[in-house]
Design a protein around this nucleic acid. Structure first.
Lengths: 128, 128
DNA sequence: CAAAAGTATATGCGTATACATCTAATGTTG
DNA sequence: CAACATTAGATGTATACGCATATACTTTTG
């Protein structure tokens, strides 16, 4: 990006970025939902957990990497738990904290959904 | 962007883009809401109308440029109308269509909000 | 060590959005 | 021109999110 693009240019870029972003997010949501029964946000969280050392992160750590507010993350993890893809349990070191761990079923779902997600990203990247 | 970036790279870029996008959209919403009482989406629609030839567009035309679904746009325009920033009236050529026009108050609000929006965009552009 | 401040998560509530469907108006076709 | 298809917009419904706050636990402080 240029050093000091004029403001109209910035505004136009933002408008276009917003368009691309929303289209891509919509595609992701639709493809992941229809083929794997998960949303794009679900996928992000599953991915973070699947890539974590032991498939295990405190919610607070998850929140630092997922692009969600604390409340949204709390509910999302609760939803994933009720879907059997994640489990929550107390952290003994600090009993305010809660660990989220990815289950075998969750990992399987993630592995299946991954090519779908990558394909959508690739398609969008090529269309630009 | 490279011709055939590998998939992990794409996924990482997407993750980062999502982060930047959400932060920016949140900043915009908060700044515009606190200083001018409008959301980022409100601003987008006001901008489209303010820049339209006669400050006048059919909802369907608005929808082609705003990054919103038809239903979201319909409600958004209704909200702007109840806030006195926009007016709706029938189109005589095609009585299914509805024109949205920006009012003097709406244009004033847009002009006031514009520097705020541009400042947020500029701040984000510089932080990258 | 008791009280106050801080931290991690959950939840009540309001709002924005998407999807599906409805209504009204227009176009098309036999 | 009557029946059907299409189009523009509105609305019922469900969901996801953010903000504010509540709850439970931990750390700091006097």
């Amino acid at each position: 990006m240029a050093k000091a693009p004029n403001e109209e240019q910035l505004a136009t870029e933002w408008h276009e970025l917003m368009g691309r972003f929303r289209r891509l997010l919509c595609s992701l949501d639709r493809e992941l939902e229809s083929k794997h029964g998960i949303s794009a946000s679900d996928f992000e969280v599953l991915q973070l957990l699947a890539e974590a050392p032991k498939g295990k992160l405190r919610l607070h750590e998850l929140g630092e990497h997922a692009h969600l507010t604390q409340s949204a993350l709390s509910r999302l993890v609760a939803k994933l738990e009720s879907g059997g893809m994640v489990e929550r349990f107390m952290c003994d070191d600090d009993r305010r904290s809660v660990f989220a761990t990815i289950t075998a079923a969750g990992r399987k779902r993630y592995v299946q959904a991954r090519p779908t997600q990558r394909a959508v990203l690739r398609a969008e990247a090529q269309s630009v």
